[in-house]
Protein backbone atom coordinates (compact mmCIF):
# COMPACT_ATOMS: atom_id res chain seq x y z
CA UNK A 1 0.00 0.00 0.00
CA UNK A 2 1.23 3.45 -0.95
CA UNK A 3 -0.49 6.62 0.23
CA UNK A 4 0.85 10.16 0.24
CA UNK A 5 -0.94 13.46 0.85
CA UNK A 6 0.52 16.72 -0.34
CA UNK A 7 -1.22 19.79 1.11
CA UNK A 8 0.21 21.92 -1.66
CA UNK A 9 -1.06 19.80 -4.55
CA UNK A 10 0.04 22.56 -6.92
CA UNK A 11 3.59 21.18 -6.64
CA UNK A 12 2.50 17.93 -8.25
CA UNK A 13 0.60 19.76 -10.99
CA UNK A 14 3.64 21.90 -11.76
CA UNK A 15 6.03 18.94 -11.65
CA UNK A 16 4.12 17.01 -14.26
CA UNK A 17 3.85 20.16 -16.41
CA UNK A 18 7.62 20.53 -16.05
CA UNK A 19 8.40 17.08 -17.45
CA UNK A 20 5.58 16.10 -19.78
CA UNK A 21 7.06 17.83 -22.84
CA UNK A 22 10.34 16.02 -22.30
CA UNK A 23 9.29 12.48 -21.37
CA UNK A 24 6.17 10.61 -22.41
CA UNK A 25 6.32 7.72 -19.97
CA UNK A 26 8.10 7.27 -16.67
CA UNK A 27 7.99 5.43 -13.35
CA UNK A 28 7.18 7.04 -10.03
CA UNK A 29 9.41 5.10 -7.65
CA UNK A 30 8.03 5.05 -4.13
CA UNK A 31 10.07 4.11 -1.08
CA UNK A 32 9.61 4.87 2.58
CA UNK A 33 11.77 7.98 2.39
CA UNK A 34 10.80 9.59 -0.92
CA UNK A 35 9.03 9.42 -4.22
CA UNK A 36 11.31 9.86 -7.20
CA UNK A 37 11.20 9.90 -10.97
CA UNK A 38 14.11 9.45 -13.35
CA UNK A 39 13.54 9.47 -17.10
CA UNK A 40 15.37 10.35 -20.30
CA UNK A 41 13.87 11.96 -23.36
CA UNK A 42 13.52 9.74 -26.46
CA UNK A 43 16.80 10.86 -27.96
CA UNK A 44 18.75 10.27 -24.70
CA UNK A 45 20.17 13.79 -24.81
CA UNK A 46 18.55 14.95 -21.58
CA UNK A 47 17.30 13.45 -18.34
CA UNK A 48 14.88 14.61 -15.69
CA UNK A 49 15.20 13.56 -12.04
CA UNK A 50 12.57 14.41 -9.44
CA UNK A 51 12.76 13.81 -5.71
CA UNK A 52 10.06 14.59 -3.15
CA UNK A 53 11.07 13.57 0.36
CA UNK A 54 8.51 11.83 2.55
CA UNK A 55 8.96 14.58 5.17
CA UNK A 56 7.51 17.10 2.72
CA UNK A 57 4.15 15.29 2.75
CA UNK A 58 1.66 15.68 5.57
CA UNK A 59 0.87 11.99 5.36
CA UNK A 60 3.16 9.35 3.85
CA UNK A 61 2.94 5.59 3.91
CA UNK A 62 4.81 3.16 1.69
CA UNK A 63 4.78 -0.45 2.89
CA UNK A 64 7.20 -1.70 0.26
CA UNK A 65 9.04 -0.16 -2.73
CA UNK A 66 6.73 0.36 -5.71
CA UNK A 67 7.25 1.48 -9.30
CA UNK A 68 4.20 3.15 -10.76
CA UNK A 69 4.49 3.50 -14.54
CA UNK A 70 2.51 6.43 -15.91
CA UNK A 71 1.86 8.33 -19.10
CA UNK A 72 2.83 11.94 -18.42
CA UNK A 73 0.32 13.51 -20.82
CA UNK A 74 -2.55 11.57 -19.29
CA UNK A 75 -1.50 12.37 -15.76
CA UNK A 76 -1.22 16.03 -16.76
CA UNK A 77 -4.79 15.94 -18.08
CA UNK A 78 -6.11 14.59 -14.78
CA UNK A 79 -4.05 17.00 -12.69
CA UNK A 80 -5.54 19.90 -14.65
CA UNK A 81 -8.80 18.96 -12.87
CA UNK A 82 -7.21 19.82 -9.50
CA UNK A 83 -7.39 23.41 -8.31
CA UNK A 84 -4.19 25.24 -7.45
CA UNK A 85 -5.25 25.36 -3.80
CA UNK A 86 -6.22 21.68 -3.62
CA UNK A 87 -4.50 19.07 -1.50
CA UNK A 88 -3.69 15.95 -3.51
CA UNK A 89 -3.54 12.42 -2.15
CA UNK A 90 -1.96 9.63 -4.20
CA UNK A 91 -2.92 6.04 -3.43
CA UNK A 92 -1.87 2.74 -4.97
CA UNK A 93 -2.25 -0.87 -3.95
CA UNK A 94 0.87 -3.06 -3.98
CA UNK A 95 -0.39 -5.11 -6.91
CA UNK A 96 -2.85 -2.66 -8.43
CA UNK A 97 -2.93 -1.35 -11.98
CA UNK A 98 -4.17 2.13 -11.23
CA UNK A 99 -3.15 5.21 -9.26
CA UNK A 100 -5.89 6.90 -7.33
CA UNK A 101 -5.68 10.69 -7.08
CA UNK A 102 -7.90 12.50 -4.60
CA UNK A 103 -8.23 16.29 -4.86
CA UNK A 104 -9.58 18.16 -1.85
CA UNK A 105 -10.43 21.82 -1.90
CA UNK A 106 -8.99 24.22 0.67
CA UNK A 107 -12.33 24.29 2.54
CA UNK A 108 -11.98 20.64 3.45
CA UNK A 109 -10.34 21.40 6.79
CA UNK A 110 -13.10 23.80 7.72
CA UNK A 111 -15.69 21.17 6.94
CA UNK A 112 -13.89 18.88 9.34
CA UNK A 113 -14.01 21.71 11.89
CA UNK A 114 -17.72 21.99 11.35
CA UNK A 115 -18.27 18.38 12.23
CA UNK A 116 -16.20 18.79 15.33
CA UNK A 117 -17.75 21.99 16.61
CA UNK A 118 -21.19 22.11 15.07
CA UNK A 119 -23.26 21.40 18.13
CA UNK A 120 -21.31 23.51 20.58
CA UNK A 121 -20.85 26.48 18.25
CA UNK A 122 -24.42 27.61 17.76
CA UNK A 123 -25.21 30.70 19.69
CA UNK A 124 -21.97 30.70 21.62
CA UNK A 125 -19.86 33.81 22.14
CA UNK A 126 -16.92 33.27 19.84
CA UNK A 127 -14.20 35.83 19.30
CA UNK A 128 -13.90 37.04 15.69
CA UNK A 129 -11.79 34.76 13.50
CA UNK A 130 -12.00 31.81 15.83
CA UNK A 131 -12.82 28.35 14.60
CA UNK A 132 -16.28 28.69 16.05
CA UNK A 133 -16.95 31.80 14.00
CA UNK A 134 -15.91 29.87 10.91
CA UNK A 135 -18.50 27.27 11.86
CA UNK A 136 -21.18 29.89 11.65
CA UNK A 137 -20.01 30.88 8.18
CA UNK A 138 -19.98 27.30 7.02
CA UNK A 139 -23.36 26.75 8.57
CA UNK A 140 -24.63 29.64 6.47
CA UNK A 141 -23.12 28.09 3.33
CA UNK A 142 -24.80 24.82 4.13
CA UNK A 143 -28.12 26.55 4.37
CA UNK A 144 -27.74 28.34 1.07
CA UNK A 145 -26.80 25.10 -0.64
CA UNK A 146 -29.89 23.47 0.88
CA UNK A 147 -27.69 20.54 1.74
CA UNK A 148 -25.93 18.77 4.48
CA UNK A 149 -22.25 18.12 5.19
CA UNK A 150 -22.08 15.08 3.01
CA UNK A 151 -23.13 17.04 -0.05
CA UNK A 152 -20.37 19.56 0.45
CA UNK A 153 -17.82 16.84 0.89
CA UNK A 154 -18.88 15.36 -2.43
CA UNK A 155 -18.50 18.74 -4.13
CA UNK A 156 -15.15 19.38 -2.54
CA UNK A 157 -13.47 16.01 -3.07
CA UNK A 158 -12.73 14.61 -6.48
CA UNK A 159 -11.40 11.13 -7.01
CA UNK A 160 -9.70 10.10 -10.25
CA UNK A 161 -8.08 6.83 -11.23
CA UNK A 162 -5.13 6.87 -13.63
CA UNK A 163 -4.35 3.62 -15.44
CA UNK A 164 -0.81 2.49 -14.76
CA UNK A 165 1.49 0.73 -17.19
CA UNK A 166 4.59 -1.47 -17.07
CA UNK A 167 7.58 0.58 -18.13
CA UNK A 168 11.09 -0.77 -18.59
CA UNK A 169 12.90 2.32 -17.50
CA UNK A 170 16.54 2.79 -18.37
CA UNK A 171 18.14 4.06 -15.19
CA UNK A 172 21.34 6.01 -15.63
CA UNK A 173 23.94 5.75 -12.90
CA UNK A 174 24.94 9.35 -12.28
CA UNK A 175 27.99 9.57 -10.03
CA UNK A 176 28.30 12.23 -7.34
CA UNK A 177 30.24 14.98 -9.06
CA UNK A 178 32.13 18.00 -7.77
CA UNK A 179 31.37 20.61 -10.37
CA UNK A 180 33.87 23.33 -11.24
CA UNK A 181 31.18 25.97 -11.45
CA UNK A 182 27.94 26.45 -9.51
CA UNK A 183 25.69 29.36 -10.43
CA UNK A 184 22.60 30.26 -8.44
CA UNK A 185 20.31 32.82 -10.02
CA UNK A 186 16.64 33.84 -10.16
CA UNK A 187 14.70 31.20 -12.12
CA UNK A 188 12.62 33.87 -13.88
CA UNK A 189 15.73 35.60 -15.18
CA UNK A 190 17.12 32.31 -16.51
CA UNK A 191 13.80 31.65 -18.25
CA UNK A 192 13.87 35.07 -19.93
CA UNK A 193 17.44 34.59 -21.13
CA UNK A 194 16.61 31.20 -22.67
CA UNK A 195 13.45 32.56 -24.30
CA UNK A 196 15.22 35.59 -25.74
CA UNK A 197 18.22 33.64 -26.98
CA UNK A 198 15.99 31.22 -28.88
CA UNK A 199 14.98 34.07 -31.17
CA UNK A 200 18.52 34.23 -32.49
CA UNK A 201 19.69 30.63 -32.75
CA UNK A 202 19.65 27.02 -31.65
CA UNK A 203 22.86 26.73 -29.65
CA UNK A 204 23.69 28.56 -26.44
CA UNK A 205 27.15 28.95 -25.02
CA UNK A 206 27.42 29.38 -21.27
CA UNK A 207 30.75 30.71 -20.16
CA UNK A 208 31.72 31.31 -16.56
CA UNK A 209 34.76 33.46 -15.78
CA UNK A 210 35.84 35.84 -13.03
CA UNK A 211 33.83 38.51 -14.82
CA UNK A 212 30.56 36.61 -14.41
CA UNK A 213 28.39 34.24 -16.45
CA UNK A 214 28.03 34.97 -20.14
CA UNK A 215 25.17 33.49 -22.14
CA UNK A 216 25.84 33.79 -25.87
CA UNK A 217 24.12 32.77 -29.09
CA UNK A 218 25.09 33.12 -32.75
CA UNK A 219 22.59 32.76 -35.54
CA UNK A 220 21.67 33.92 -39.04
CA UNK A 221 19.90 36.97 -37.61
CA UNK A 222 22.85 38.08 -35.54
CA UNK A 223 24.35 37.46 -32.14
CA UNK A 224 23.19 37.93 -28.57
CA UNK A 225 25.11 38.11 -25.32
CA UNK A 226 23.93 38.50 -21.76
CA UNK A 227 26.33 38.89 -18.87
CA UNK A 228 25.18 38.07 -15.35
CA UNK A 229 27.37 39.29 -12.51
CA UNK A 230 27.55 38.01 -8.98
CA UNK A 231 25.12 39.82 -6.72
CA UNK A 232 25.28 37.94 -3.47
CA UNK A 233 23.95 40.82 -1.37
CA UNK A 234 20.64 41.48 -3.08
CA UNK A 235 17.92 42.40 -0.61
CA UNK A 236 15.75 39.39 -1.38
CA UNK A 237 17.21 35.89 -1.35
CA UNK A 238 15.48 35.06 -4.62
CA UNK A 239 17.15 37.99 -6.43
CA UNK A 240 20.66 36.85 -5.53
CA UNK A 241 23.17 35.71 -8.11
CA UNK A 242 25.89 33.60 -6.57
CA UNK A 243 28.78 32.16 -8.53
CA UNK A 244 31.20 29.61 -7.13
CA UNK A 245 34.05 28.92 -9.52
CA UNK A 246 37.08 26.67 -9.19
CA UNK A 247 38.13 27.23 -12.79
CA UNK A 248 36.57 28.92 -15.86
CA UNK A 249 34.18 26.68 -17.83
CA UNK A 250 32.61 27.20 -21.23
CA UNK A 251 30.07 24.76 -22.67
CA UNK A 252 27.50 24.82 -25.45
CA UNK A 253 23.99 23.36 -25.36
CA UNK A 254 20.89 22.97 -27.51
CA UNK A 255 18.47 25.75 -26.57
CA UNK A 256 15.50 23.52 -27.39
CA UNK A 257 16.18 21.39 -24.31
CA UNK A 258 17.04 24.29 -22.01
CA UNK A 259 13.68 25.75 -22.99
CA UNK A 260 11.94 22.52 -21.89
CA UNK A 261 13.71 22.81 -18.53
CA UNK A 262 12.37 26.31 -17.90
CA UNK A 263 8.85 24.82 -17.68
CA UNK A 264 9.86 24.21 -14.03
CA UNK A 265 10.25 27.95 -13.34
CA UNK A 266 7.01 28.14 -11.33
CA UNK A 267 8.29 25.55 -8.86
CA UNK A 268 10.64 27.99 -7.17
CA UNK A 269 12.32 31.39 -7.32
CA UNK A 270 15.81 29.98 -7.78
CA UNK A 271 17.65 27.87 -10.32
CA UNK A 272 21.09 26.31 -9.81
CA UNK A 273 23.38 25.51 -12.75
CA UNK A 274 26.25 23.07 -12.22
CA UNK A 275 28.96 22.77 -14.87
CA UNK A 276 32.33 21.14 -15.44
CA UNK A 277 34.32 20.91 -18.69
CA UNK A 278 32.98 18.38 -21.20
CA UNK A 279 30.27 16.85 -19.00
CA UNK A 280 26.48 17.34 -18.89
CA UNK A 281 25.12 20.48 -17.22
CA UNK A 282 22.76 20.03 -14.26
CA UNK A 283 19.91 22.52 -14.07
CA UNK A 284 18.28 22.22 -10.66
CA UNK A 285 15.09 23.82 -9.37
CA UNK A 286 14.82 23.36 -5.58
CA UNK A 287 11.21 22.85 -4.44
CA UNK A 288 11.15 24.53 -1.02
CA UNK A 289 12.13 22.08 1.68
CA UNK A 290 10.33 19.26 -0.13
CA UNK A 291 12.77 18.21 -2.84
CA UNK A 292 13.91 19.18 -6.32
CA UNK A 293 13.61 18.67 -10.03
CA UNK A 294 16.95 18.34 -11.81
CA UNK A 295 17.61 18.23 -15.51
CA UNK A 296 20.78 16.85 -17.07
CA UNK A 297 21.74 17.90 -20.59
CA UNK A 298 24.62 16.52 -22.65
CA UNK A 299 26.78 19.25 -24.19
CA UNK A 300 27.55 19.91 -27.83
CA UNK A 301 31.27 19.41 -28.39
CA UNK A 302 33.54 20.40 -31.28
CA UNK A 303 35.19 17.32 -32.70
Amino acid sequence: MFEARLTSGKILKQLIEALKDLVQEANIDCSDDEISIQAMDNSHVSLVAVSLRSGGFDHFRCDRPLSLGFNATNMGKILKCAGNEDAITLKAEDDGDSLSMVFEGPNQDRIADFGEFARGARGSDSPPGSRREKCWKIDFNFATMRGVGVLVVIFDRKIYELKLMDIDSEQLGIPDTDYKVTIQMPSGEFQRIIRDMQVLGDTLSISCTKEGVKFGVQGDLGTGNVLIRQNAHAEKDEDRVMIEMEEPVELTFALRYLNFFTKATNLGPTVILNMSPDVPIVVEYPIGETGHIKYYLAPKIDE
Binding site: V45, L47, L172, T203, P280, A298, P299, K300, I301, D302
Partner: peptide, 14 residues
Amino acid sequence: DPRQFTLLKFYELN
Protein backbone atom coordinates in the same frame (compact mmCIF):
# COMPACT_ATOMS: atom_id res chain seq x y z
CA ASP B 1 28.79 22.95 -35.90
CA PRO B 2 29.60 21.18 -32.63
CA ARG B 3 28.17 17.69 -32.29
CA GLN B 4 25.31 16.90 -29.93
CA PHE B 5 26.25 13.99 -27.69
CA THR B 6 23.85 11.77 -25.77
CA LEU B 7 24.00 11.19 -22.02
CA LEU B 8 25.08 7.60 -22.70
CA LYS B 9 28.54 8.93 -23.57
CA PHE B 10 28.91 10.21 -20.00
CA TYR B 11 26.91 7.86 -17.79
CA GLU B 12 26.43 4.09 -17.56
CA LEU B 13 23.04 2.47 -17.87
CA ASN B 14 22.27 0.53 -14.71
